[in-house]
Design a protein around this nucleic acid. Structure first.
Lengths: 158, 158
DNA sequence: TTATGATTAGTCAAAAATAGTCAAACACTT
DNA sequence: AAGTGTTTGACTATTTTTGACTAATCATAA
C-alpha cells in the first residue's frame, strides 16, 4: 500500500514540482486510514530524499509536497553538522560560520545574520543549555542551506 | 473561504493603499456569516503583516484596512523591532520575516535562514521563555540588517 | 436634551473540519 | 524467535466556521 501511494504521488510529481493533497481524500482513494498517508510521507518524502512537506490543519487543510534541489555544498555542510554535534560554544560556532563564508557557501550578509544568532547575549545565561540551543539553531540553519526550492511559493500563511 | 476573502482584499489593496468595506456586504458577497470577516481580519491583516485596521459601528459603519506605509528599509526595520517587543510567538515572528521578504529587505535565502531560527522546535519548550528568546534573536537580526549594505537586487526570480 | 430603536461591528465559545502522533497489532525476513 | 517495516485506530492539535450575545453609533421621537 505504502509503495502504491508513494508511486502515485511521485508520478504526479514528475509532471509538477509540487503537489497538494487533502489527506482524507487520498486515504479514501486508496481505501486506507488517513494516518497511512503520514506514514508514506514520513518514510518516502523526507528531506534526505529531496522533498519538503508543508501542511495545514482545519477547514481547507492540506498537505503539500515540494520537490527540492540538493545543492553541491552538501558534503561540506553535512560534515559541519556532524562536527557541531549536540552542543557548541559561541566561539566555535562563530568559527564555523566564518568557515562557511570563506568557503563561499554563504554571503557576507548571511554570515552576519548567522553570527548574530550565535551570540551569547541572546541566550538564557545557562552555559550548558545555551550551547545546546546554539547547536540546534546552527545545525538547522546549515541543514536549510542544503536545499533549494525550484519555484516560487504562493501566499504563505502559517 | 478565509483564503478567498483574504485574496480578494489583498487584490484590492494592490491597487489602493487602503480599502473600506461594509462587513455585512462582504459577508453576503461570499455567502458567509459576518463574523467570518472578523476572523479573516484578525488572522490575516495583523500589524505583523503590515496592516492597520479601523472600524466604526452603527449606521454608516465600516471596516477600513490600511497598508502600513514605510519610508525606507531603516524605517521598516525600526518599526518591526518595535512591534516585536520583548516577546513574540513563532507565528507572529514568521509573519514578520515574511513581510521582510515581501518588502524586499531580505533575500529568499536570508528569509529562510531567519524562518528556521524562529521555529518552535529549536527552543527550550517553555513557551514564555522561548518567546522572549525568539524576540531577542529576531530583533538582533533585524538590527544587524540596519547596518548592512542594502541587499543587492537581482531580477526577482525567487 | 434624553430616551429609544435601528443599524452596524465585535467577542467568544462551541462545533466542524482538517492533519499529526503514537503505540499496538500485523506481516515478512532472517 | 527476533528484527524490521507496515497498517490501524484512538487520541490529540490546529484552524476555520458559525451563531448567539454584546457594544457602539446614528437617527428620530419625546
Amino acid at each position: 500500500m505504502t509503495d502504491i501511494i508513494e508511486a502515485y504521488l511521485k508520478k504526479v510529481l514528475q509532471q509538477q514540482e509540487q503537489v497538494e493533497i487533502r489527506r482524507s481524500e487520498i486515504a479514501q482513494l486508496f481505501d486506507c486510514v488517513p494516518s497511512q498517508i503520514n506514514y508514506v510521507i514520513n518514510t518516502r518524502f523526507t528531506i534526505q530524499r529531496g522533498y519538503l512537506v508543508e501542511s495545514k490543519r482545519g477547514g481547507g487543510g492540506y498537505i503539500r509536497i515540494i520537490k527540492v534541489q540538493v545543492l553541491d555544498d552538501l558534503d561540506m555542510l553535512n560534515t559541519m553538522i556532524e562536527i557541531i554535534g549536540k552542543s557548541i560554544s559561541e566561539k566555535e560556532a562563530k568559527s564555523v560560520v566564518q568557515k562557511l563564508y570563506e568557503e563561499d557557501i554563504v554571503s557576507k550578509r548571511e554570515a552576519k545574520l548567522m553570527l548574530v544568532a550565535m551570540d551569547k547575549s541572546l541566550y538564557t545565561g545557562d552555559r550548558l543549555l545555551d550551547n545546546r540551543l546554539r547547536a540546534n539553531l546552527l545545525k538547522s540553519m546549515l541543514a536549510n542551506l542544503k536545499y533549494e526550492e525550484p519555484k516560487k511559493r504562493k501566499a504563505d500563511n502559517s
